[in-house]
Design a protein around this nucleic acid. Structure first.
Lengths: 211, 211
DNA sequence: ATGTTAACCGGGGTAAAGTCCGTTTCTCTG
DNA sequence: CAGAGAAACGGACTTTACCCCGGTTAACAT
């Protein structure tokens, strides 16, 4: 009697065909976005392009926003790695204030780069499942805690700082579709302003040390 | 050769029937929201309830979100009046820091009260037309200017503070549909936290003077 | 190998947003 | 008051997100 593969632990592994199809769908979505922007990524078109049925697309991603969330998740994982184990000041090692500032800069760049996808990943039906696609709030929360600054409601403040960082790019800034050079112009003041915000909230005063 | 109608001046006043119908539509929408929540306000149902055709609904409001924007605009106007000409510290008269804090408190209460409509007014197709439905950003911008605090990028900072104030309620907090008592619980720390934010950004320190 | 089962596949079906265009209604002028 | 022109109306039409269900297939145990 030989032991079966993976006796338990996971309820069940993803089936091989399913995995293959998911890759095909994500690849097709990426291609369609590159060609025509997010607007043209319809469920029918995506299914046809990937050579699959419509039902399959919905089983994999639940909703249209889900596709973009999945796409974003990949990038997000890379980003998260840089934050969790990359070099300081983004990664561990620097002091909390500097890490917050560095995080803000990096996050703004990230959101700018994936702006179209990030917006399409929003689903007005449900609020953003904080901490799933977004690591921002818990990370900010942690750094606030490490900072040693006495803050009355750090959890709530973390929510508000998260909104201050991501909201402008998700909600308020226009920048529709093109946004190549105007993006860079918008990024700079946002990052500067974020630094000011952090310095004042943590009551530190770092000299402007740019790269 | 006689001159055509309305040489110039106004493009044209709104036609009487149009005005009447708009009122009917808004009233119907309000009733439907009160009865079944925003989810059940569909364009077809709204048209039927108001005794009008669907085309009419779309001409008036362009999009589904437009209905809720219109609804919100009315409340917003009332709110705006309190801010622009009401008693201090919300209205003019108090010092900028206190007004910012008061504005935040009032705004949080406002968004809490109209949470469902505000969320339904979001349109992921277009970003928020800043300054149209929302007076928040310009108001914050003005008060930052009046505060005398030297801030590097006040315009951008105003955007971020706006997001910090409105984002949590629009984007991140769940609170779906019911939110009567949990709402009040959520409101308090948000307001406290907003006060901290402002105090630190403006580098003032107001003693906790509660009502 | 092979039976069992749970997950997957596909495509046709529904509901709701948004568009079009022929028809009706208003309003202004003479 | 009559008539012209502009604006508003209405509802059928199109598009698209999302559901459903019968048939199929991969994974596992024996």
């Amino acid at each position: 009697m030989n032991f079966p593969v993976v006796p338990l632990g996971k309820p069940r592994g993803e089936r091989a065909d399913a995995a293959r199809n998911r890759e095909q769908l994500l690849a097709a979505a990426r291609a369609m976005i590159a060609e025509h922007g997010t607007r043209k990524v319809t469920m029918d078109a995506l299914a046809e392009r990937a050579g699959l049925g419509k039902g399959t697309v919905f089983r994999r991603f639940r909703t249209r926003a889900g596709i973009f969330r999945a796409l974003l998740d990949e990038e997000e994982r890379r980003f998260q790695e840089r934050v969790l184990s990359g070099p300081p000041p983004l990664g561990p090692g620097a002091d909390p204030a500097q890490r917050l500032i560095a995080y803000g800069r990096a996050r703004i760049a990230f959101l700018l780069e994936h702006h179209a996808i990030a917006r399409a990943a929003l689903d007005r039906a449900q609020p953003i499942p904080v901490g799933e696609v977004a690591m921002t709030r818990p990370h900010i929360r942690m750094l606030l805690g490490l900072s040693g600054s006495r803050l009355p409601h750090p959890d709530t403040l973390a929510v508000q700082l998260t909104a201050a960082l991501e909201g402008p790019l998700l909600l308020y800034l226009s920048m529709d579709e093109d946004a190549a050079s105007p993006a860079m112009e918008a990024a700079h003041p946002l990052a500067e302003s974020w630094q000011t915000l952090i310095e004042r909230v943590l009551q530190v005063d770092l000299p402007p040390e740019e790269a």
